[in-house]
Design a binder for these strands. Sequence first.
DNA 1: ACCGACGAAATTGGTGACAATCTCGGTGGT
DNA 2: ACCACCGAGATTGTCACCAATTTCGTCGGT
Lengths: 219, 219
Amino acid sequence: MGEGNGSDRAVVAGIREAILTGEFVPNQRLVEADLSERFAASRARVRAALLELTNEGLVERVQNRGARVRAVRLEEAIEISEVRMVLEGLCAAKAATRITEAESEELERIGENMREAVASGDVLGYSRLNERLHRRVREISGQHTAATVLERLRAQNVRHQFRLAMHPGRPTVSLPEHLAIIDAIRAHDAEAAEAAARAHLRSVIRTLPEAARRPAEPA
Amino acid sequence: MGEGNGSDRAVVAGIREAILTGEFVPNQRLVEADLSERFAASRARVRAALLELTNEGLVERVQNRGARVRAVRLEEAIEISEVRMVLEGLCAAKAATRITEAESEELERIGENMREAVASGDVLGYSRLNERLHRRVREISGQHTAATVLERLRAQNVRHQFRLAMHPGRPTVSLPEHLAIIDAIRAHDAEAAEAAARAHLRSVIRTLPEAARRPAEPA
DNA sequence: ACCGACGAAATTGGTGACAATCTCGGTGGT
DNA sequence: ACCACCGAGATTGTCACCAATTTCGTCGGT
């Protein structure tokens, strides 16, 4: 896709990282001068970076009032997840038709590691595998457009995603869903892969409201 | 969603309009000084506008080499249409569950007008109704996130969309598809609505390569 | 005639200063 | 005690200018 300025990328990446790790919390003001100092960049660059992050949906800007970290409400998180549902379904289906032998073995390994992580109660490890699985499916699908949109939406939902991962008993529910996706893709069954991916996201959407009720903040 | 600067909007809208109407053709260079004069705006504003349009996927920028209108290749147009397929499916399904009586009658009228346009060979009128139908379905669905993504993708594909509309015999093929979408939504049948929307987009994707072979330029 | 080096013109990138606007605490009147 | 007003400080928006880079025509050498 269209790349902005090369030097800008560092600032964009830095601010995005800070938002995604939770260092910058929702509704926190993002003052251009402060960011300029922190990232050792000119104000113009910070400005451009905020513009870009606004388009990505991570930042909200108001005329003459500056930028703040966008707070995604539960209702919106559900909408985003509904879009993810159909897009991940598309990617899973395409991945099923394109997957190579090497990639198939990689997915198998991810599945095995997930099983182990859940068995040993390694929530963080499972969360990482989760993200890796979804990313690999996107990549294998070869759907560049869908992948770009999905990454963007995933970033917007990171906070809700985190709460979900911390929801008690969640891994036990999602593990079989993930394994079903892996199996269908490895079997080159596009229809089943799409159905499995959708079922998984449907389960996420169902759980989102519960998870939102318990406050849980990242480090 | 996040709004940029209010004053910038005019320049952004102006450039976008020029690209969408085909006045600015793909790969045409967008020189900041020229745009600055044309839209009576400072270069800084033009610069910000180009940044935003880059994020929208309408413009491509290269470091120190300026901006040009992004050319969407056929392969990419197909990918975009595949994403549209699942998203329009989602919107159609949601619209089926939410549509009101008044909206139902509006869709019926649009369907009637489409029939008449095709019968009288009014290609342009049919094209406008086509766009209106898709937009109304998005609105009725209440899926703000999906609608935003769809509008963006539709803008990127405008050139291919135009070629498609000019493809001989195309309206005769797409009319029943559109009517099927309308009927399913009006019948509150979410599953059928999604299937109809997908079938329609699948038909678009099938025709895209043929339409791309015949050159056809907008006014 | 071909090819690479060179330099002028065009274009973009960056910076600093200034203007416009908003926020927030205080002040005076009722 | 309450409220409208207002002014200082903070923050964003805008602009003009200069530096850096690319582009392209020209020139000299082979």
